[in-house]
Design a protein around this nucleic acid. Structure first.
Lengths: 264, 264
DNA sequence: CGAAATTTTGATCACGTTCAACTTCAGTGG
DNA sequence: CCACTGAAGTTGAACGTGATCAAAATTTCG
């Protein structure tokens, strides 16, 4: 594994509020359940290290057993598979607040590789440790399930992208999805964001050739739906874009914990 | 909802062994963790009813809120989305032992519809009740996460199908996937199975037109890889088929519960 | 600054869609 | 029981979309 690890600092308090706001995994978890201070502490206890990974390095390699969970703090990655003929399919993009190892570590052997597309920093947690946490605090097991459900919903849309949407529709949908996922963890403005992926990656995600993706992108620009300078994407006509893409935001409901306890 | 419900019978014992073997959800759960008799009983307590659904009826409708879990006991379904232009994409096929409502019920509103492709019988469980169960017995929350991970792995392969595999490869892969999933719950022979889906459904799953799917199927037959009479599919050359499809079986590891408890 | 990665443009061609007709099969009511 | 109906499977011909290959322009990074 191509990661440089440094022991996790156990600075307990520091600026706690900052952590609530700035840690993207916590941001996402708190959209699903209420987290108390003790919850936060037991979560921290389960993190064995923080690591950094350099751009272009593989986080996970297909076919290898892997029993760690990586909570992405910063940076971006892509989950992909290489076929015999040299073609690559990107299954999904990994953003801050996502967990790598969710499908992979739960299986005998990872079904996909995951490559860092930028320098990353992530928090490592042994699978058994997390399972232990779930036993002590079932809340976390539920959060895991809910996050898995969100991911499944994104996968489903991705299947629809490559299966039945036209190239323009796919691309529009991808851009809107990335935008909304970034926004969820505070990494996008209302109508603009920094696209962390190259056209080659997007074409491998959408099942298109690079030239065709490029032309499709040009088409969206020509229609006045988006504007691009460098990595910055501006959404000029969100309504039209959403309509074109058949886009519906994926928003998860909260976990009905209190109701469940009431029912007993 | 187009289901006819009858109150769940609370016959506690009966032929318990039969239930262990014949209930497809239990078969799958037991591949992940050890289940005790009390586990089984608390699981049963959470089922509020058993229901039957007729062929062609929708189990879940896109856009509606839905807070039930359906454990599929018998029959088959397809999770799909309809686009404006009339095209349909089938996101996945639902088999006995699967749970419907896994992504759907966890979100505000279901992102896909689910249609019964045969008469079905299923067990209904309120989401809050299941969450309650997970709180009392964290084991079940973990089972849920693991099943979600398996499903995610299948979704990922499906993305690769429509994105980068050629039509023959896709079809080969679909057939192998269905076969192995059926085998997992004891519904397939080693080299043959009853295909519960029409060519139209398969073409909507694989992003192909019906005529082309038909020709592709003919191609697989001509190559001597499979044989079909009626609904029965025979796998004549599994090795070649797997190679063609880039097929790797998705097998989930067991949940490391004991290890987790040992670590504490 | 130089080298490599990325984006852009163009021309050709194959693959899979579309549309249409026909066949076969299963189910249903007369 | 057979005739009828609709669903499912099969086949053919023409067309168009997006792949492929190649090369240039541009940007990024070591």
């Amino acid at each position: 594994m191509n990661v440089s690890v440094r022991p996790s600092t156990t600075r307990v308090s520091g600026a706690l509020k900052d952590i609530w706001r700035s840690d993207p995994f916590l941001i996402r978890a708190r959209q699903l359940v209420d987290l108390t201070l003790p919850d936060l502490q037991s979560l921290r206890a389960v993190i064995e290290a923080e690591a950094t990974v350099k751009r272009r390095r593989d986080l996970v390699l297909e076919g290898y057993e892997c029993s760690k969970l990586y909570f992405i703090k910063e940076g971006f990655a892509a989950r992909y598979k290489l076929l015999r003929n040299g073609k690559r399919q990107i299954v999904n993009f990994v953003l801050p607040g996502d967990i790598v190892g969710m499908p992979g570590s739960f299986l005998d052997r990872a079904a996909n590789s995951v490559i860092a597309v930028s320098d990353m920093t992530l928090q490592i947690c042994a699978l058994e440790a997390f399972v232990g946490l779930c036993c002590r605090q079932p809340k976390f097991g539920l959060v895991l399930s809910w996050l898995a459900a969100q991911e499944a919903a994104h996968y489903a849309e991705h299947i629809i992208d490559v299966g039945r949407r036209t190239p323009v529709e796919r691309l529009a949908h991808l851009l809107l999805e990335i935008h909304s996922r970034l926004a969820l963890v505070g990494l996008a403005d209302e109508f603009a964001f920094n696209l962390p992926f190259t056209q080659e990656m997007m074409s491998d995600a959408l099942g298109l050739s690079v030239p065709h993706l490029n032309r499709t992108l040009a088409h969206l620009r020509a229609e006045g739906l988006i504007a691009i300078n460098g990595r910055r994407v501006e959404i000029l006509d969100r309504k039209a874009l959403e309509l074109l893409a058949h886009f519906q935001p994926i928003q998860s409901g909260r976990i009905p914990l209190s109701e469940a306890l009431a029912v007993n």
